[in-house]
Every structure is written in structure tokens, then in C-alpha cells.
Design a protein around this nucleic acid. Structure first.
Lengths: 408, 408
DNA sequence: TTTTATTTTCAACGGTTGAAAAATTAGAAG
DNA sequence: CTTCTAATTTTTCAACCGTTGAAAATAAAA
């Protein structure tokens, strides 16, 4: 009988020479990806590896088709000229699907982050329907981008969605609605060779994308967005911070006031009751149906009124700004981020929200000068989740280039 | 000229066979430390390493004096009997000093966590004085426990203190008050061979200790304490979460109410103004001098009145409980911990605080059933910071057993 | 041709692995 | 009671893999 291994899930796997190779391949690939075309000497200096190792590792990456010699670089003086290498465009294809209510968006990217155009397709409902229907929708969205060309390695498919399918199985409401279950259903529906599928939360993915867009090398970044609901996430040193139940950074039900409106969750004074699209529209006198086309028209009207300086609209945003400011003050006290990125409608509304936010955060500046987070609008708009899902997919390749087969 | 390496500080070091050895030695040592006396076969099954590797790794650890063969274990049947190994008591000595106002406490521990008795010594002030004075005090505290016996490896000295000497240099108010500067000053004052010195925040250390005492294998744990001031920390998967400026988890200035008392920090309604010792004593009609002996007497008196059911005292604690509950609701919304540990006076007061806390958290339970954190008193009392500092020191040995020299 | 800088080659070293051997005991057989 | 066999743990050893350092090869400028 073969030896049975019953390692704890928490204990790390033992390290062997394969792990060493994986780690160093990753190190070199990340360096090339981050620094563009660069010679082996530069890689050696930048990574701490010895020239001989870089030669071997780069040769391995070339075998896998991930990097290639770039055209001769400008001579830097005398001596043997450098032979820079760069990422091979299009060698791996990462696919992301963002499932929203009524439509899905699909987009692909290569390792360098060069994306295809996003395609938007109607779907049968949204993230809350039966998993089988969801899986059908996702598979047909993937089908819409067509099969990869020969020679292109099929990387991960990453699905971003909100709702009861959580990112980590342990946080799922039931095993039947677990991320891994959905991933399996989708994988079974995809033609061709089996493809690894990941499921991520859309707010967490958007947060990751905005984090990368900020291009700060580390630190804590918070993301808060408001569309249909209020959602958010925390990114710590480039990784999503989940908390114990996957709810970290979900500011929707943070208490803003002791005597505020009653929230659907049962509590009073939740942030949602101040800054959700529905709440702001109602406060501005534009409430009514929650049908998408009506909400869309109301948002346009709100924008007009804000620009026209209509007092009721301004008051609604001022109220939301103060509430958001209070929530961010709590966020700052707990998580101590250096950036807070606002997404969804909050990004559009930021000019009118800012006075309220600043008024609240000014209090914190009194306690901790210069330690107050910078509040900025997101750069990626509604595509943030899609970009974040692609970044998560690329990260798998960057972390383990050996997963891409050798021999072009 | 030797090759110059200019690696980014953020890029990981390259991996080589020494790193493999380090990682696997650590894996085996952690297993033995966690599971007590255990045979090589058990280690192999538990870690995923092969028998041959475990033999070599255990032999290495025996060479370093970290583990030794334990007395023969009870036979488990036929076959060659197991030869369990266990940690060698007292092989390494980790020293921790906790600097408080007016006195310091020093304690030592070996790798198994067997501690000496804590010794309390008066000091020249506290964490806020000149670093040179602080270093003198710390060095004399270390001196009080005497030099290690021959054959004992001198591990880290870990200094726990609050105040402007932060745990990470990047968070220090100025380079002159940085943790590494203090560490250097202390190291220079210690007799004998140079000893690595770490500086940690006392609340973060206490949080780490209470996290270990909970014996949950991972997840997010928050710690909040109130003594002179309110402090706290977050532990995520066994490691301190610092945030961008080292302030994560410091709930003292989280906003609890929009119209509360004005805090010394300038803001209104900070948690500190409700649950600090001073605030509670004043609210209970026991305010007055802040001299230590007076505060101590007032606390005793407060305890009497609480047990006697005196209404003003009960009201003061009820008010504090509601404020703390609101802060924990924010904490739960941002960091999503599964445990909140209360330390300092909060642990003593918990019976009277609990109704207020529960009233607030009940609201959150409406939104996320079963996702509400458990609120418990700390197990370690005033020695928590000391234990956490020792745990941090032990962690260095567990992470890199190769730092302990071979050859007894 | 010399100098300089980059890249490659190669033997050496350290670490893990798998298989085989050694060690050691309990139970079965004689 | 002795001997043998089966079972289990531990150790040994050759093989393999990856990094390293030094030397060699390469290539262009001076």
C-alpha cells in the first residue's frame, strides 16, 4: 500500500527542487513583465539571481513560449551587446466573464495585459439564478470569443459575479452554491481541453483592478462602490483580504448613524440606506420604479439637476457624502488604508460627495496628521471587475510559469 | 569587482537549496513543536515529506540541539518501535521586555513556550522618554534575568511598548525614533555576543498572544483593550495586520456617535471618550486625579459598586457597552473577524458591557446570520503583551531553525 | 589587437526522492 | 522455549534536479 499522506490543509507543502524552479521562473517572468524588454544582466541584477541561473531560466521561459528575444537593443557602449528579452504577445489567453443582472461581459487578455475588446451579451438573469442556468450563460459568453488560435496557451477562465456564490467555498451559504461547484459546471460545458475555472467576487475583482491601476507597490487600498447595492473590498499588498467569512471590506451595512433609516437588513443607519442608488434617488425626489431603464433615466436626470445646482439634489448628495465620510472614518480606523477608491455611481458623484467626506475625515486628520486616506474615483469604471478578473487570471501564470507547456 | 545586486525591496529573494533546507527544517520543527513527541513516520505523514528526508532533517535538528529522542513510546503493535522526538527544553532562550509607565516586565521562554517567572522592575519613565534612557532601562531589565547558561542558544530579545516608537520603521514619526534605532541602542548595551533585537507594539503583541491562546487555526481575530488609552490590533492568519501606517485595528478614534463628547484628538464621538478608563470612571462619578494609585483605588471602588448594583456605575458601563458595540459593528463590517478579544479593563468589565455590545451586534446578526464575531475576554490579562513578544521571538526560530548553530 | 561587457558552458555542491536494506519487535509455528 | 515470519519504522544510497561560481566563449567598440 502506498504511503498515505494526511497533511493538514494549513501546513505548507514541503519544498523541493521543483518548487525552487517554480519560484525562480516566476521571479524572472515577473521581472520581465514589469520592466519590459530587458537583458539577462538586468534580470540578474534585479532579481539577485546569478547570470548562469538567469540564462537557464530564460531559456526555459523561451521554451515555453512566454518570452522571446526582442530586437537588438541600442548599444550601451563596447562589449558584447545585450540581447533583451520581452513577453511574447498573445502566448497565453486569459478569459474573464463578468456576470451582471441581465447581461454578461466577456473579455480576454494576454500576459502583458493587452486585452481584446469587451463583448456584452444578454444573459438569462443574473448571479442569483440556478447555477446550471448561470453556467450555461457563462459558457456561451466564453463561446462568443471563439477558440484560441493554435499555439496560444489556454490560461484560466475567471468568472466575476456578486451574490451568493462566494469566492471561497468556506464562505458559501451551502455546498450546492459553492464557487467550486459553479466552476465545475462551467468547466464541463466548455469545449476543447479542460480549462481551469475560478470564481471571484466582482467587488473584490474590481478592487484588485483599481489597486493595480493605482500602481502603488503595496500598502492597503480600500474600494467602495455603489450601484444596485453597496459593496467593497480591501486589497493588502496586492492580495484580497477576505476576513473570516469573505465579508471584509463590505461596507454596505456598516453603521453610520444610531438613528438613521431602517435598512432591509433589519439594522438602522446602515451605509446602504444613505448611498445606494435607490436611496440617493429617493432622497433627491427621483425615486420610483426599480426597473433598469427607469433607474438609468433617473440617474441622468439627477446628473442634470446636480450640474444645474438644484438644491434638493445637492442636499441628497451632501447627505450621502457625510454618511460615506463617516463610514470611511470607521474604515480608516480599522483598516488604515492609504487609498480609498470609489467605484460605480460614487465615482460619478464624487465632486458632490467630497465636501461631506472631507468634513468627516478632517476629524481623523486631527488625530493622525497625514495618515488620512486619499479618496479618489476609480479609473476603470464599470469594467473594473472584468479587469480585476483578468489580473487574477494572469497572476496564476506569473506565479507558476511552469504550468505553460514546453515546446511551441 | 563583485557583481552589484540592486534588488527591489519588494521582490522576493531568489530560492536556492539553502532556502529549501530552511523551509523544510522549519516545517519539521513546527510539526514537532505543535504535536509534541512524535515519531519520524508521523512527521512524514503530517508534513508530506518522504521518510528519507525526515530522517535527514531530524538529524539536522538534533545536531542543533533543538530536538532530541524522547523516551521510548508505548509500542503500537509489532514492527520496529517508533523513536519519537520532542523539543529540547531550554535549548533556546527568547527574552521579552514589556515597557509600561513606571515599570518594565521581563520574561524568558524556550521554544516550547515554557516561560520563566515574569520580573517587574521600576523604570525611569516609560515609552515616551528619550530613547537612550529607554534603552538603559531595557538593558538593565535584561540584565536582571542573568546570562543564559552554557549550551543555551541566545535567541531574540523582543521589546514590547506602546507610543511613538512604532513596530515598522516606515511608520515611525522620525528616523530618530524608529524601531531599528532603539533596537540598535539596546543591542549596544547588552553584554556578551551580539543579540538580535526586535521592537513590537504592545497592543499588537497582546493581540498575537490572545490569538494563540484562542487556538483557532487561522482566520481574523481582533483585539481591543482599554487601560490608560484604547488600543487594538488585528491578527490575520496568525500575523499582525499593520495597514498602511501601522494603525490598523487601533479602534481608539473610531467614530461611535456624531454628537458625542469632544476627544483629545479633536474629533467628536471617538470610542476613547466612552470606554477609556478615565471616561468610564468619570461617568461613574469616580473621576479625579490620574495618578496611578488614585486610578487603581477608583477601579476597585467601581468594581464594588458594580457588584452592588449601584445604578450610576451600571449606567456608566451600559453607556460604554453600547459605544463598544457600535465600534465592533464597524469593525465587523470592515475586517470581518470571527473573534473579538477584549483586554485590559474591558475584560474585567465584560459582564456589564455585554448587554450593550450584544444589542449593537444583534443588528448585524440580522444582516449576516451567524457571521457575527464572538466577543470574549482575554485569557492572558496584563501579561498578554509579554507573551506575544515571546511568541514573536519564538516564531523567528521556528521559521529558520538553521539560525541555531550546530554542534552542542 | 586590445579592452570591455554580456552570455554561455561546465563541474561542483547541496537538497530531496524512491527503492532497497537494515533494524526491531509481536505473534505464529514447531 | 526456540525459531521463524510478518509487520513496521528507520536508515542508507544512488539518482536526479537546480543553483552557483569560475572559466570560456562571444561580440562590438576603441
Amino acid at each position: 500500500m502506498a504511503t498515505r499522506h494526511n497533511r493538514d490543509v494549513n501546513t505548507p507543502a514541503p519544498t523541493d527542487s521543483a518548487a525552487v524552479r517554480r519560484a525562480n521562473l516566476s521571479l524572472v517572468l515577473r521581472y520581465v513583465a514589469a520592466h519590459g524588454p530587458c537583458a539577462r544582466t538586468e534580470v540578474a541584477a534585479g532579481t539577485g539571481l546569478v547570470h548562469a541561473s538567469v540564462t537557464a531560466l530564460v531559456a526555459d521561459l523561451i521554451d515555453r513560449g512566454l518570452v522571446a528575444e526582442a530586437g537588438a537593443a541600442a548599444s550601451t557602449g563596447r562589449g558584447r551587446p545585450r540581447r533583451p528579452v520581452r513577453l511574447v504577445p498573445g502566448r497565453v489567453r486569459t478569459t474573464a466573464v463578468h456576470v451582471a443582472w441581465g447581461y454578461s461581459t466577456v473579455m480576454t487578455s494576454d500576459l502583458a495585459g493587452v486585452t481584446g475588446r469587451p463583448r456584452r451579451l444578454p444573459n438569462s438573469g443574473g448571479p442569483f439564478g440556478p447555477l446550471e442556468v448561470l453556467a450555461d450563460d457563462i459558457a456561451s459568453a466564453v463561446d462568443a470569443v471563439g477558440p484560441p488560435e493554435p499555439g496560444v496557451h489556454h490560461g484560466r477562465l475567471v468568472i466575476a459575479l456578486s451574490g451568493p456564490v462566494t469566492e471561497r467555498d468556506q464562505d458559501a451559504p451551502s455546498p450546492a452554491r459553492s464557487a467550486s461547484h459553479l466552476a465545475r459546471l462551467v468547466a464541463d460545458r466548455l469545449p476543447g481541453p479542460p480549462c481551469p475555472v475560478d470564481v471571484v467576487n466582482d467587488a473584490k475583482a474590481a478592487a484588485l483592478a483599481e489597486y493595480h491601476a493605482l500602481a502603488v507597490g503595496g500598502g492597503t487600498v480600500a474600494y467602495v462602490k455603489s450601484d444596485a447595492g453597496v459593496a467593497g473590498a480591501l486589497i493588502v499588498d496586492g492580495r484580497v483580504f477576505h476576513g473570516s467569512h469573505g465579508l471584509a471590506g463590505e461596507l454596505g451595512h456598516i453603521p453610520v448613524s444610531l438613528d438613521g433609516p431602517v435598512c432591509r437588513c433589519g439594522a438602522t443607519g446602515c451605509l446602504t440606506t444613505y448611498v445606494s442608488t435607490r436611496a440617493v434617488l429617493e432622497e433627491a425626489g427621483l425615486g420610483g420604479s426599480t426597473a433598469p431603464h427607469h433607474v438609468s433615466a433617473a440617474l441622468t436626470e439627477l446628473d442634470h439637476r446636480l450640474r444645474a445646482g438644484e438644491p434638493v439634489a445637492l442636499a441628497a448628495l451632501d447627505r450621502a457624502g457625510h454618511a460615506l465620510g463617516a463610514a470611511l472614518q470607521s474604515l480608516a480606523g480599522v483598516a488604515d488604508p492609504d487609498h480609498v477608491v470609489l467605484g460605480g455611481r460614487l465615482a460619478d458623484w464624487l465632486p458632490w460627495l467630497r465636501p461631506g467626506i472631507d468634513a468627516r475625515l478632517a476629524a481623523r486628520r486631527g488625530a493622525f496628521p497625514a495618515f488620512s486616506p486619499a479618496v479618489t474615483p476609480g479609473h476603470l469604471g464599470d469594467e473594473a471587475a472584468l479587469h480585476g478578473a483578468l489580473a487574477a487570471g494572469r497572476e496564476h501564470i506569473l506565479a507558476d510559469p511552469a504550468a505553460v507547456p514546453k515546446g511551441a
